[in-house]
Amino acid sequence: MSAEDALKSKFDGGELAFSQFRDNHRIVVPAAKLFEVLAFLKNEQNFDMLAEVTAVDYLEYEGAKDRFGVVYVIVCTKSGERLVIKTFVNDPEPLLPSVYSLWKSADWLEREVYDMFGIRFSGHPDLRRILTPDEFTAYPLRKDYPLKGRGERHNFPVLTRAES
């Protein structure tokens, strides 16, 4: 029985939406059920590797209902099977359960999502900014942040040759 069938029989309330595009098997999961689904896949379906956690800001996406989509790509290293799990969260307080207790690779991946999109993960051991400086206040990959920034890149003292 494939993982998708197992999921269908376990969560038969119709909350999960299954689809396929090329070779990607995708499952859209409501945020409330996310941890349960991922824990089931990890513990009972043997998806032992979390390859990727990322987010998408759907602010300017045509026909999108929710603000942020968070994507988990999980792999079963035994069978080589790959699943793309997706969930949606919304402003003003985007919050998801951390999957650090399942896969340790979630540590930095979730930190990056927090840094770039401002989505918080409850239960994460150390949710700090990782790529941008600590004093940075914006979330750069949100669609309402301009490509060239808001002048942060030029906010430094200038050294001339005479004084250095």
Binding site: F21, N24, E52, V56, V71, V73, R82, V84
Partner: peptide
């Protein structure tokens, strides 16, 4: 939307 990965010299290099 698509996730596709290749085996780069360093490991799995994927693009979403």
């Amino acid at each position: 939307e698509i996730y596709a990965a290749t085996e780069s010299p360093n490991g799995e290099l994927g693009y979403y």
